[in-house]
Design a protein around this nucleic acid. Structure first.
Length: 152
DNA sequence: GCCAACGTTGGC
DNA sequence: GCCAACGTTGGC
């Protein structure tokens, strides 16, 4: 079982919408490292932190589960889609996505600042590669964060 | 809205 | 292969 952190802009896809929809596909990732994680490493049943960026505060808003492993991101083929990429061909897709299911929300978003203050979380990818929208989370980090009673 | 960090593109 | 220009991410 692997753990992940996936970022969504709150004004684009808030966790309240995820909760209503229950399942969705995670499209629009256009970074190779994030793509590789989704295409090669995510497994059905893996859990992830749903992270709100561009929000007040930014931070972990909830938890989701991977329910379908990597497959071509069709929004890259759609000329009218904001994530259209003419270099991604149906015969040779460049971008991948996964299907995800809502699991639960934090009582309140756990702010980035709170995570930063915990010395045990210092090595999280979140701080080392701030711009990466899909990133692995270590089991110890997962357990520590999900065990923060005030927030769940 | 600003801007630092960082990834990608393309000329050479 | 280098690197400047450019675009995007995301915190603030």
């Amino acid at each position: 079982m692997n753990y992940w952190l996936m970022k969504a802009e709150e004004n684009v896809y808030p966790i309240t919408l995820f909760q209503r929809e229950k399942t969705t596909y995670w499209d629009g990732v256009r970074n190779y490292q994030a793509r590789n994680s989704m295409r090669d490493d995510m497994r059905k049943g893996d859990l992830f932190f749903f992270y709100h960026s561009n929000s007040k505060p930014t931070g972990i808003a909830g938890i989701g589960r991977i329910i379908k492993e990597g497959y071509p991101d069709h929004t890259a083929f759609d000329r009218k889609d904001v994530h259209y990429d003419p270099k991604s061909l149906a015969t040779n897709p460049r971008w991948y996505m996964v299907d995800v299911q809502y699991v639960k929300s934090a009582k309140r978003t756990i702010p980035l600042e709170v995570l930063k203050q915990n010395p045990k979380l210092r090595d999280m990818a979140l701080f080392r590669q701030a711009q990466l929208s899909v990133q692995p989370v270590r089991e110890a980090e997962w357990k520590l964060i999900t065990g923060m009673k005030d927030w769940w």
